[in-house]
Design a protein around this nucleic acid. Structure first.
Lengths: 342, 342
DNA sequence: AAAAATATTGTTAACGTTAACATAAGGTTT
DNA sequence: AAACCTTATGTTAACGTTAACAATATTTTT
C-alpha cells in the first residue's frame, strides 16, 4: 500500500505551512487565490484523500449517524432507511447501520459501540425483546442526541417520531366491528414495546367504545414476526368452535401473514371464516392470497422526519424535544370481509 | 453536555499513568490484576466511553466497512445487507451504508466520502448508470480493499462475488424454449453493468444453442426498475400482432413486474398470450397476480460471503483475489406456462 | 510617510489514544 | 550478592488534522 498523502506532504511540496494547506482545502478563512489553486493542484497531483478520522478527533464531530433497526427484512424498514439516508445525505452525514435482530443484548451492544465510534446522533427503533431502557438513558445522559422512531421510548427526554398507533389500531378494529364482527381477537406484540402496548390499547378502546365485552382470552401474546402470528393463530384454532373469535386484529402485517397461513392451512376461508387485518401495509399485503386490510404507515416520510429532527438536535442543543405523530390511512382490502357499496 | 471522560481522567483519579489505564482497558500486555480491577471500576464510576476515533487514528484502522448499494427497496438488497451485517458483526466491524440510488455521481461521491472516513474496506454493487470505473480504480490503487458483489466490475484486480448470471439467464431462457416458445424477447438491463451484459449474453446463448434466430428488435434496452419493464413492454405491445414476441425474459423481477402490469393492463393473459420470466426471486414474485417464474439468488449468502472475503482482504493483504460464484436455482411458477407433469 | 486596517501566512498546542522504548521493582539463579 | 529474568509501570512521540493566537506582508487611510 502506498504511503498515505497528508497535509504535511502537500505543505512540504509547495513550501508552505500545514495551516495554509488546511485552509486552502477547506475553502474557509482568508487565503490567497493563487495559493489555494496551487494547493488544490498539488493535492490532486499527489492523490490526497482527506482524513476524516483526524478531523473528527479535532472537531469532536464525525458527521455520522447511528441507525439501529430491529429487522431489516420487514419491508417497512428499508423504506424508512431510504428516507433516513436521503436526509442524512443532504446534510452530509453518513449512516452506520446496526441490526439488533430484535435482540436486547445486540441493541445494547450496538448503542455502546456507536457511542464509542462517536456518532453525532442515534436513531433507534426498539427491538422486540427490550424490557428496560437504561441503555438509552445512559447515552442520553452523556449528551448524545437520540431520536426514537416507530417503536418509541417515552419519558426519557428524547424526541419521538411515530404514527398514532393507538388511534390507528382503534380505527382498524372499529372497522371490523362496523362490518359486524363481535368476537374479535388481538394477536398482540410485547407490551414492553411502544407499538405493542399502544396497538393493544387501541384495540381495547375500540371494543369499549362499541360496548363489546373484552375477552381476555382473545388477547394472544404474540410477536412481530410471521412465525409469531402463525403460532398464535394455531393456538386460537385449537379452541372449540364456539369459543373462537371471528375477527383477528394482528399487531402487524408479518404476524397477519403468519395467521393467514395458519388459517388457510387448516382449510378455513378468509374472510368467510375469519376476518383478518394487519398493520403497516407491508409490500406483500396487497399481493397475498387474500389481500390484507391494513394500516398504511408513511415509512419513507417517517425516516425523513426522524432524521431531520435528529440533525436539528445535533446542530442545535436547544432544539425542542417533541413527540411527532404522522398520519396513517386505513387500506381496505378483502381480508376484512368488507363489501364496498359501489 | 457533560465533559467527556478520557483515559487521562481515569489515570489521574487513580494516580497512575495513561498507559497503564490503556493497558487495563484493553486487557492486553502485562498488568497487575488489582490495578486492572481498579481501573475498570473507576472507568465505570466515571462513565467512561472509549473513543474509537482516537484509537482509529493511532491504529490506522476503523473497524468500519463501507457498503454501497444501488436500490435498497428491491427485496434482494435488504437480504444481502442482513448477511453483510451479520458477518461484519461477528468480526467486530460496523457498516456504513450508502445508497447510490442507481446514480453514478452519487456512487462516486460515496466512494470518496467513505475513503475519507477511512473505512477498512468497501463492498459495492454498481449503480445502473455507471459507465466508467476510474473511481473504483482510484481507491484500489490507494490500497483500499474492495469487493464487488452482485453487479460486479471485473479486471480491476478486486474479488467479486456473484451468481453465474450468464448461465442462469441461459437456463431460464432455455426453459421457455423447452416449453415451446420460439419468439422470445429480452427486456435488457444496461450492458455497462455486469449483470445487464451477462444476462443478455445468456439469453443470446440459449437462442443460439437451440438454433433460434436472434431478432435484434427483440432485445429491448430497459432497466432494473419496475417502470423500465413497464415502458419496454408497452413498446413491445405496440408492435403489430404478428411481429410480437410470445415469451419475455426480463432482466430482473422488478422489470418483470412492470411488464406484467403492462400486459394485464391491456387485457392480455399470462401465460396464454405472453409467457414471462424474471430474475432474482423478489419477495413479491410468488405473490403476483400471475406468480412469476424466476431465478432464485442466495442473497443472504451472497452478503455473507462477500463480507467474509472483504474481511479476509482487509486482514491479510496477501489474500487471493477471486471471482466467487454462487449457485442459483430456477423457480418455476405459472407465468412461464409450464405444465408440471404431475 | 506614519498609522491603521486588512489580507495572508505561520506557530503552537490540542483532540484521545496507543506503540515503542525505558525504567523500576521484585524474584531467581548461581 | 552479583547477574539475570519477570512483571509492572512510566515516558515520549506519534496518528493527521484544525483552533487559537501570533506574526508578517500588503494595502489603505490620513
Amino acid at each position: 500500500m502506498k504511503k498515505r498523502v497528508t497535509v504535511k506532504q502537500i505543505a512540504d511540496e509547495i513550501g508552505m505551512s500545514m495551516m495554509t494547506v488546511s485552509r486552502a482545502l477547506n475553502e474557509n478563512g482568508n487565503i490567497n487565490k493563487k495559493t489555494r489553486e496551487k494547493v488544490l493542484k498539488t493535492a490532486k497531483k499527489l492523490g490526497y484523500i482527506p482524513n476524516f478520522v483526524a478531523k473528527s478527533l479535532v472537531q469532536q464531530k464525525t458527521f455520522t449517524i447511528g441507525v439501529i433497526i430491529p429487522e431489516i427484512t420487514h419491508s417497512f424498514f428499508p423504506e424508512v432507511i431510504r428516507g433516513i439516508e436521503e436526509v442524512a445525505y443532504q446534510s452530509k452525514y453518513q449512516i452506520i447501520l446496526a441490526h439488533s435482530a430484535e435482540d436486547q443484548q445486540k441493541e445494547k451492544l450496538a448503542i455502546r459501540t456507536l457511542a464509542s465510534k462517536r456518532v453525532d446522533g442515534l436513531l433507534i427503533s426498539t427491538a422486540q425483546s427490550v424490557t428496560e431502557f437504561d441503555h438509552y438513558q445512559e447515552v442520553v445522559s452523556h449528551g448524545l442526541p437520540l431520536v426514537s422512531f416507530d417503536r418509541c421510548v417515552y419519558d426519557i427526554g428524547v424526541s419521538t417520531v411515530s404514527i398514532d398507533d393507538e388511534l390507528s389500531a382503534e380505527q382498524i378494529t372499529e372497522h371490523l366491528i362496523k362490518i359486524g364482527y363481535k368476537k374479535i381477537a388481538h394477536l398482540a406484540g410485547p407490551v414492553t414495546v411502544s407499538i405493542g402496548k399502544k396497538r393493544l390499547n387501541g384495540f381495547k378502546k375500540a371494543l369499549k367504545k362499541n360496548k363489546l365485552v373484552l375477552n381476555e382470552d382473545f388477547i394472544i401474546p404474540s410477536g412481530f414476526q410471521e412465525a409469531d402470528g402463525y403460532n398464535s393463530m394455531k393456538k386460537l384454532l385449537k379452541l372449540p368452535k364456539t369459543k373462537r373469535p371471528r375477527g383477528i386484529v394482528a399487531v402487524n402485517d408479518p404476524a397477519a401473514f403468519g395467521a393467514m397461513k395458519a388459517i388457510l392451512e387448516e382449510g378455513y376461508k378468509i374472510p368467510e371464516d375469519f376476518a383478518l387485518v394487519g398493520f403497516s401495509d407491508d409490500i406483500r399485503a396487497e399481493l397475498m392470497e387474500v389481500p390484507l386490510t391494513t394500516i398504511r404507515q408513511p415509512a419513507y416520510e417517517l425516516g425523513r422526519i426522524a432524521t431531520q429532527k435528529l440533525i436539528a438536535h445535533i446542530e442545535n442543543s436547544k432544539e425542542k424535544v417533541e413527540e411527532i405523530i404522522l398520519p396513517t390511512e386505513i387500506v381496505v382490502r378483502s381480508s376484512c370481509g368488507f363489501k364496498s357499496s359501489s
